[in-house]
Structures are given as C-alpha cells and as structure tokens.
Design a protein around this nucleic acid. Structure first.
Lengths: 216, 216
DNA sequence: CACGGTATAATTGTATACATAAATACGATT
DNA sequence: AATCGTATTTATGTATACAATTATACCGTG
C-alpha cells in the first residue's frame, strides 16, 4: 500500500476560503452562494460544498437554505481564545519537555533563529510564519494529537491579530525573546520552567493584543 | 426569512457514523468503503462523502485513495482529554457563574434532578444523558462559543467511558453529588467556588476512569 | 517454476443533472 | 389601493455519471 495522499480540490478550496475569512477578506455578515464560488474559483460544486460543510463545522460560516453566511471571528472569540490558550498551552510545553528529542530541538532552534532573523529584517510576514511554526512544533512535540487538534485551530483563528502584533517591532522583539526562554527550558528538559515561560508568553501576547482596541 | 434548517442526510449520516465509531461498533483499524456505506445506509454517495470528510476533520477516520481507515479514540487520547478538561472546564463554570440567569439555573436544576432520579433507578443510559447535558449546559451558559466548541468535542469522544463509569453505582452517586456542589455554587454566583468544584469533579472522574485499565 | 507486464477491478475525486424548498415578484381580485 | 394567491426564480440537497489512480490478478514468457 503506497497510500500517497494527493491534495484534493476540496482541501484547496477549504484552505483558500478559510484564509479569506480569517484574514478578513470575507467579513462577518457577508453572504456567499455556491454558484458564485463556482465561477470565482473555477471548480465544480462538489469540492466547494465539501469545503463549505467543513467550514461550517468550524463555525466560520453558517449554511442556510438561502445562502451562506460568513461568521468569522469576533472580538469575544479573540478574548476567549486567549483565556483558553493561557490554560492549556503551558501543558503542551510541559509535555514536550518530557519527550523532546535532539532532532526536534534542532528543528525548533532553526525556527527560532529564522524568527530572530526576520525580526532583525522587520519582516512581519516572516515573523508571523515562524512564530506560528514555533508554537505548532511544540504542540507536535507534546506527543498529544488531541492537544494539537485543540490548540492549533485556536491559533489559526487569531493569526490575523498575531500578525498585527508582531508588526510592532517592540512586541516582535519581546516575543522572540520569550520564545528563546521557552526553547532554553526545553533544552534543559525542565517541564516546570517550560510551562512557566509558555504561560507567561501567552499571557503577554494576550495583554498586548487585547489592548489594541481598534482591531475589531 | 424563515430560515428553517432541516436535518440533511449528510448530518444524519455524520451523526450515525460518529456514534458507531465512538461507541466502538467500528473499531480502530477497521476499513470501510463508500459503496459499503451506500448499501448499508441506503443513501447516495454525496451525503456519505460529506459526512466522511467531516469525520476525517475530527480525526475519527482517515480517508485514503484505497478506502477509509477507522482511527477512533485511543487510550492516550482518553488521558490527554482529561488533562485538558481539568485545565479548562473550570473556566466554563467560572464564566457561567458570572452571567447565569434564573431560567438557566432552573434548566440546570431540572437536569440535575433527573440525573438524581436515574441514579436512584440505576439507569446508566439515563444518567449518562443527564450527565452530558449538565456539562453541556454549563458550557452554553459560559457565553463562550469558543469554549463550547473546544470542550464539547472532547466530551463526545469519551462518552463511552463516561457511560461505563456511571454504570458503577458508587461512582454514579459521587458524580451526581459533585454536580450538585457545582450547581449550588452557581446559584450563589460564586465563580471561585464553581470553578473549584468543577475542577475537582473532572479530576475525580479522570482518576476513576483511568484506573479502569481494562477499558481499552 | 519464477518473474514481469498488462489488463482488470475497485476505490475515491470530480462534474453535472435533477429534486426540493422558500423567498420574491407579479397579477388578479376584492 | 391593498391583499392574497400563484408562478418564477434562486438557493442548497441529493443522486448519478464519469475520471483518475492504484492494487490485484492473470497470463505470457524466459
């Protein structure tokens, strides 16, 4: 069994529409129809319907007999997501510290150094990608598929605001330093310290993000 | 706009298959095909494919070019889910305590009393349903859609084990008492107490559940 | 008898035709 | 002029036909 999994049109449409919504190109209250997406995206209704039903399951849209309503992410969602992240993302760091391998540490180090590089270049897109990857890797290395599936969707939903945060050079520098502290704790395989620095990191990210009132 | 949302075949197939997997009728490693489901369920491929893609998104199955692999819930998942619940379900109780209305308290009370009734009757199915509803209501009353969407899928994945737990009369009685403590705290609108009792409740449920080794 | 290639079958992915339901627009009627 | 009923339009839900890929079985050949 070779089992090579190709990227289906459904998946492509799903990711594209998810992005459009999460980056605000489609806003809360906008309405869509399948036929409009057919002409816009150039694929048939089948993969589009697949994608839409998955987006509905993530509560990003609502499908009604008369059209598709964009829900997106609200300001309340943003606050709620940080409240949850503060409570569980430390767990991911804690578990990762227990089981992380040298190879995984090397991968994390490279991501961290790339992030530092982009901070130096003041490249928000680069920073944001490496920031996401850093957190994503730690979730992976936690060894818990459930934890990964719980945290990553939350990250994705607020990527727009995290992108905005690291556009401010001060915050970008703080953020990467906090990442380094987490990384160093992981090198020492110190669970308590890894958890502590992760929680503090998320807390600071929340404080910074929620105080920018004009983002919603 | 009447917007009456009928229950589509896709939804019915989704819930049915989700149930079959979560209750162990389809086990990890089992393989399915769309055509088998077509003949078994008596609907066309379209709603079945919709349902399968949503199940894949929940990581309950894996769809490959040669068939469908059932993943289900592992023992590791069970432990991971409790670790997460211990960290965030108290938050749901805390938030609910802030905003809960008298009507919502009445609804919660009725659920609680029904659960007590079923415990008296030693009716595990009844207990399990009311137990689930109690937790679900508190998530609703927290006012956070994100929190609801984060916790409820975790509940669903371990419903089989929670059902088993409340089949033991001792645990069923403890459990309903713990629920009552949470309810009383909510009546007082005491956030700290509500959170405390919820965390303790989940912790005890975990201890009881994970010690039954023969469940996986 | 072993091995390789080709044909076949079985599977999911995709497109499209048809069914169904509801909102809207239009016309007739009072 | 207002209102009720009906026809039409528009939307998603469903079924089915077709495409593409790949594992498998079979047959021929060395």
């Amino acid at each position: 069994m070779f089992e090579h999994k190709t990227i289906s049109l459904s998946d492509q449409v799903f990711e594209r529409l998810e992005d459009e919504i999460l980056w605000g190109n489609y806003q809360r209250g906008d309405t869509l129809t399948e036929m409009k997406l057919v002409t816009d995206l150039g694929v048939s209704r089948t993969p589009i319907r697949d994608a839409l039903h998955r987006l509905e399951q993530e509560r990003l849209i609502e499908i009604t007999p008369r059209g598709i309503l964009v829900l997106g992410v609200t300001g309340k969602d943003l606050a709620d997501i940080y409240a949850i992240r503060i409570r569980i993302e430390g767990l991911a760091a804690r578990e990762a510290a227990k089981y992380i391998t040298d190879d995984q540490l090397a991968e994390l180090k490279e991501t961290l150094e790339l992030q530092e590089f982009y901070v130096g270049k003041q490249n928000p897109d680069g920073i944001k990608i490496m920031d996401s990857q850093f957190h994503s890797l730690i979730c992976q290395f936690s060894g818990s598929a459930i934890l990964y599936d719980t945290i990553i969707p939350l990250h994705k939903k607020i990527q727009r605001y995290r992108r905005a945060a690291v556009s401010v050079n001060e915050r970008a520098q703080e953020s990467v330093q906090e990442h380094r502290a987490i990384y160093e704790a992981l090198v020492k395989r110190d669970s308590d310290e890894a958890e502590h620095y992760m929680v503090e990191h998320v807390r600071k990210a929340r404080d910074y993000t929620l105080q920018q009132e004009d983002w919603l």
